[in-house]
C-alpha cells in the first residue's frame, strides 16, 4: 500500500481508535515511524533569500524547528523551493549562529564576550559622543544642514519593513546623511 501524507494520517487515526480499545500504541508507532512533524506547531513564513517571496511552513516542537518545507497554498511557489529556500532549517538549527555579543577593543587580537546591556550602553555612549563632536548646524555656504557628518550606516535589505522604517527614522533623528544599503550595490 502506498501511504501518502494524508493517507498516513488516516492510518494513524485508526491506530488511535484501537488504542482506545486497550491495545498498546507503542508497537504501532514504532512500526509506522511517526511523522517528524507530529504534534508540531506550524508557522508560515516567507523565504529570506531572493526576492521571489516563496512561502515556507516552519514546524516547531518544544521550541525547536523540526522541519521546514514549501507552503503548498502559496500562490507563487505552490510548495516549491530552491536549494536555498529548502535549507532554511539550517538558519535556525546551526551551531555557527552568533549567540553572544562580542567586543573587540582597540588593537586587541581577540574578541571578548560581553553582555548585551553593556554593549548597548557603550554603543549609545559612542553614538552620542560622535554625534556631538561632528554635528554640523551650518555648511560652508552658511546654509542650515543639521547633520551628523561623523557616523555612517549601511544595511539592510535583510530586515523586515517595520525594522527598516524604525532604523531610518532613528538614523535620521541622529542627523545621519550617509545612509546606504544593498540596493545601491
Amino acid at each position: 500500500m502506498e501511504v501518502t501524507r494524508r493517507g498516513f494520517l488516516k492510518v494513524s487515526g485508526a491506530a488511535l481508535v484501537s488504542g482506545g480499545l486497550g491495545v498498546s500504541l507503542k508497537p504501532v508507532a514504532a512500526h509506522a515511524q511517526p511523522l517528524k512533524i507530529q504534534y508540531a506547531k506550524e508557522t508560515t513564513t516567507i523565504c529570506p533569500y531572493c526576492s521571489v517571496g516563496c512561502g515556507i511552513i516552519v514546524s516547531t516542537r518544544g521550541g525547536k524547528v523540526v522541519n521546514t518545507e514549501g507552503d503548498p497554498d502559496h500562490p507563487i511557489s505552490q510548495g516549491s523551493l530552491c536549494s536555498k529556500g529548502g535549507s532554511i532549517y539550517q538558519l535556525s538549527v546551526n551551531k555557527g549562529r552568533l549567540d553572544k555579543p562580542l567586543y573587540r577593543a582597540p588593537y586587541a587580537t581577540e574578541w571578548k564576550e560581553v553582555s548585551l546591556e553593556w554593549a548597548l550602553d557603550e554603543i549609545a555612549r559612542r553614538i552620542k559622543d560622535s554625534r556631538d563632536k561632528s554635528f554640523t548646524e551650518f555648511n560652508e555656504k552658511g546654509q542650515k544642514v543639521n547633520r551628523t557628518n561623523g557616523i555612517a550606516s549601511v544595511g539592510s535589505a535583510a530586515m523586515d519593513n517595520e525594522e527598516c522604517y524604525i532604523y531610518q527614522k532613528f538614523l535620521r533623528s541622529l542627523g545621519l546623511v550617509y545612509i546606504e544599503h544593498q540596493a545601491r550595490i
Partner: peptide, 8 residues
C-alpha cells in the same frame, strides 16, 4: 568616527 554595518 563611527559606523554601523547592520545586516550587511
Amino acid at each position: 568616527t563611527g559606523f554601523f554595518s547592520w545586516g550587511q
